[in-house]
Design a protein around this nucleic acid. Structure first.
Lengths: 221, 221, 221, 221
DNA sequence: CATGAATGAGAATTCATTCAT
DNA sequence: GATGAATGAATTCTCATTCAT
């Protein structure tokens, strides 16, 4: 897996951090709490405690619980998509770019597992998800991958007999469940061994390998 | 995709239906409501209204909200796993069995998309998920697929250089996201064409094809 | 002051009382509490305690605090207006009808001072007052009196050189402040004397007397 | 209606205005906001926004919300009462003085309708109303009018067979409702005609005319 | 003086659960 | 079994008041 620079991950502008310190802390805390208990299962007071601030202050920065979720989506997802778009626009092979996307997503999950959980699980349930903007934003993730696949098909690098949209699901779905499994600790990772510490890299490599060359025997490379 | 008999899908025993009519209606309604709003976001009154009964009656059949979720899990997931186990135990090729699994899952999703959503999203968050029984039950899904993959590796049908556990994610994740996309209607399906109506079948075939033979060009079969 | 039968005062249908017992009790309690502390100054828990019920039950019958106020207006004011309309339609002299109106209003105030206070003071502040229906309803009170005055002017019983609309204010305003003063206890009433006990009657008689014949000396009747 | 010099209306001392500019702006803003939403329904931030200052500053000038209401009362009501006392002490006929009082009140209402609304509606609800001082202050308005009426009765100008206290209600109540109606716009005023523009004057004249000589026909003057 | 972030007590509202009918 | 009224703990949301800058 090519190293994915952390700078590609969505981050906050450190310059404005001082001013929006509390607001950021609330968002960070909300992500953590939502990820653990779900949107409906989380209380504002949990978020406030997690952020280390007074309860009422949450309402100084956000109109209500719903707006917190919306802000998470806009800020985190936006940065994430920017990084993805950058990868999609690179002039390298489809394989390289897919590896980059896998690496970015797994990195994101490794660095900020809660972000991805909330983005994937909660946002879709929120009423705001009905808003075209959010649905579109989710669709952009698919669009980025679909563009890479179509590029590969046009250049002859990828098979043309398979629907790129469905191939999209295979690729993103594989990544998504891999990430979920890691977070749910369905698979034990032994961080004391080198192999355990590189688990994420191994997952990324395996996913792309299967995606490109299949699990069937007879064609090892 | 081999046709998957509906009988394999988890169903209720028609013999006891008369007796437990209301109970079943509550469970069905709960699945629908949980799928839409999440466990915490759903109210007992929503479930009762969906079931067409007085909400006090819910407490006649279930001790509390939690028990409704638990019952959903046991009844729906149990039947689903039974069907999966049956597939895994067949003495056919790994490929055939994977196609069967994909077909079963997509059938389940097509017939009862809410079941899968609730099973996947809600159960894990429930406090009961801490119970070893439920964690184990979810793990069984992975175990079934893992067994098929290991069988294939041992027989030489599948590559041995890739971790079967990770391959599991690729396979199940691809299916899962494909299903989610179908339900979220991220992809437009044109039901007016034959191809549109067979979208599920096409998805199943494509997923297995990619999973087994990869998307890279040069090795068409 | 002609006796004003209590039956003219707005009342609830005793037949439906059993069914809507609690709802009525909540409205009655709300009137009492609103009259004492004002709408904004009143808590739902105050109303519930006054009604002798759990405060959650208030939300079983009313969507929120605002709806309670709206219901008060519709039920109480409607009955009151009906009684007034009845008086206005009588075929007696304007003087008789004015005395009846004064008597009705003072009776209402004596029997249900809280009703009038809430109707007069709170409703106008409520956002619902902006609704044309409510503004119109208040206007009806003026319309009833104006009709009586115009009848009297046309029949020659009343002077035609004064604006009936303004005369309306004089009449209703006199009654209104008289009632307010009584409630605010700005005037001490000695209930131990016959005169004190007939204070309301005296007020009604005096108001109409001044309104019709003036306070200036030289024209006693 | 004799012209009522504006100087009689309660005003702020222009000399101290520079120093207490902000304080005055807060009081003015509070009156406007209280008049619209009531004391309990108004927020400090509303007052601050209306005054165009930071809401923290309100607490620099006033101990708390309650004190704002108290200050309004003392400053506005005090000046108003002074003017009334001046009228009551004049050595003219009762009729002239009543016309002056009506003119003063209507002028006040025309120039500062919010003052009167707050004074009349809110003060009585304030907890400070329990204080004898404020109750007494409200009573002074009645006392002033009552004194004029008693003077007129003693001099033979007014009828002695009617209770001066009740006559007070008639007079002040007529004025009060006339003012309220004007503010609530229950009556349409056509500002395009001379009569419309003099509506206040007409109201004052009509109120006093009815109060003194009655609406009954046969005794026109 | 000014500002507005920060606090937290208090009130509104929700909703799981109980219970009388 | 069936109903939905009744309860009140839990939570969201509001806003007067304080306080650091």
């Amino acid at each position: 897996m090519p190293s994915v620079p952390i700078s590609r991950l969505p981050t906050r502008d450190p310059g404005t951090r001082a001013r929006n310190d509390k607001r950021e802390r609330i968002l960070d805390a909300a992500i953590k709490v939502f990820a653990k208990s779900g949107y409906h299962g989380s209380r504002i007071s949990d978020i406030a405690r997690e952020a280390g601030i007074a309860y009422g202050l949450v309402y100084h920065y956000f109109k209500n619980k719903e707006e917190i979720l919306g802000s998470i989506f806009e800020q985190r997802w936006g940065g994430f998509l920017d990084a993805l778009e950058g990868i999609a626009g690179e002039r390298t092979s489809a394989e390289d770019r897919l590896v980059s996307v896998a690496g970015l997503m797994l990195s994101a999950y490794r660095v900020r597992p809660d972000w991805v959980k909330v983005l994937v699980i909660e946002i879709q349930r929120s009423s705001r998800f009905a808003e075209p903007g959010q649905l579109r934003a989710v669709g952009q993730l698919f669009e980025v991958v679909r563009r890479i696949l179509r590029d590969g098909q046009e250049s002859g690098e990828l098979r043309r007999d398979l629907d790129p949209a469905i191939a999209c699901y295979v690729f993103l779905g594989a990544l998504e469940l891999a990430m979920t499994s890691l977070v749910l600790r369905i698979v034990e990772i032994d961080e004391s061994t080198a192999e355990g510490r590189d688990h994420y890299g191994k997952v990324a490599r395996t996913v792309v390998e299967i995606f490109l060359h299949g699990l069937a025997a007879g064609r090892p490379r």
